[in-house]
Nucleic acid binder design. Structure first.
Lengths: 239, 239
DNA sequence: TAGATTGTTAATCGATTAACAATC
DNA sequence: TAGATTGTTAATCGATTAACAATC
């Protein structure tokens, strides 16, 4: 569907990307990007089971979405399906990985080695999905200099150096809430442009930096809301 | 704005809730529910700083959202602001907590005591936000019977009993992906109606059960996507 | 009263999905 | 060719937000 808005942009307004930018010439909706990560994981699982081709219906069921949505999502990447047949798993996997920018591994720095930080440092699931934790940073002088998962724990003062040396663009922040904004400021100053924040605070960053937040208590509260509605429905006589 | 659809529903179609169900008579959008959790946390922070009243503008800035959106979100709870003045923090906090169903603590069972499970069991941030982990369950016979954070680690065979005894409705699943669906089936059979899933699998559940998924690698992949676009922009001559 | 701020309206924007022409 | 499945259209649904009347 081509709207008047599209037409006016094509005619005069600056496009989001240059037309010759092959990787980035199609704007992909945020909701689609989030689902691509799921599709990529499911493709991996199906590939391990020996499948070489999947239909949009099979993939949609495995990913827990509607097949029309899945096809629309995949259509943003280009036309990699074969009508009457389905999608070649290897090709599809490669294209999704390329779109997400995880065809090559990305380097990550993890800051704050409390319970959660240590658990993430030890988590084995990042490597297979495109990420390597290349540096660990903590404020506790007793922890700095020790080795965790084969990596030296460094002081925050070494952040700039480590980010440059290891070509790091993504930081995982698992510090206490009280220091998270300060750590965030240093991380941004060091040149990091993406932050995954586990501290329960809203981080202020320049618009050039992306922040995603994981708030575990908030997730539980959302579930709690629906629990309330379930019991309210019972209370209202719907038993 | 009252649309034809609303009118036709009011006229004939069954409403989502009974009109006399005071807690649940207004349908609150999912996007709003998710933000209410943030507002609740921010209200707590502002309250600790000694504030007793906030304007929508102040609260919006602290929560990182547009103030019109915040007012619209709060309007679903009822009319708790005072024009020309703002919102009373104590009242607002209470109303949001009530809406989210966390005015009283909810009991949670945590299943799977690997790195992440142990970290969550030790995490102190749940208590202040309305949740108590009341039971720990693991499959490893060497771990069953030990004490973690003052709780006995139990076998999955005891799930039904523990859920009933402790009045648990929410489960946190931090098992390996390979057993997550099996654990999920048992959890549902035990009467749990909300699941927070950290295993990187799509869980199949009855429609009466809510599942929220936290996929850390997927979060990084979303950040990676935007990183790709940033460097593509540079590559396309926008340096 | 004058200034401030809420609650609501209505326009706009973005996401979802059934349906089907295109095509393997 | 006949059956199957993609890629796309267009309708619908849901979320966002500027603007402002209501009102403290």
């Amino acid at each position: 569907m081509r709207t008047d808005r599209d037409a006016s942009r094509g005619a005069g307004f600056p496009p989001d990307r240059r037309a010759d930018d092959r990787l980035g010439d199609v704007r992909i909706p945020e909701a689609t990007v989030a689902r691509l990560a799921t599709y990529l994981r499911v493709c991996g699982t199906l590939g391990e089971r020996g499948l070489s081709t999947v239909s949009s219906e099979e993939l949609a069921v495995a990913a827990g979405v509607n097949s029309a949505k899945l096809r629309k999502d995949l259509s943003y990447l280009g036309s990699y399906g074969i009508r009457g047949v389905g999608y070649d798993l290897a090709t599809l996997t490669e294209q999704i990985a390329r779109t997400l920018g995880v065809s090559v591994h990305r380097s990550v720095v993890l800051i704050g080695l409390g319970n959660l930080g240590l658990a993430l440092a030890n988590y084995g699931g990042f490597g297979s999905r495109g990420f390597r934790i290349r540096a660990l940073i903590d404020a506790d002088p007793y922890r700095v200099g020790t080795t965790v998962c084969g990596l030296f724990v460094r002081d925050i003062a070494e952040l700039d150096q480590v980010v440059a040396e290891e070509n790091i663009t993504i930081a995982i922040v698992t510090t206490p809430a009280s220091v998270a904004q300060d750590v965030c400021d240093r991380v941004v100053a060091a040149g990091i442009t993406s932050i995954l924040n586990f501290a329960p605070v809203v981080l202020a960053v320049p618009s050039s930096v992306d922040v995603r937040k994981v708030d575990l208590a908030a997730e539980l509260q959302i579930l709690s809301f629906h629990e309330s509605r379930k019991s309210a429905a019972v209370g209202a006589g719907l038993r």
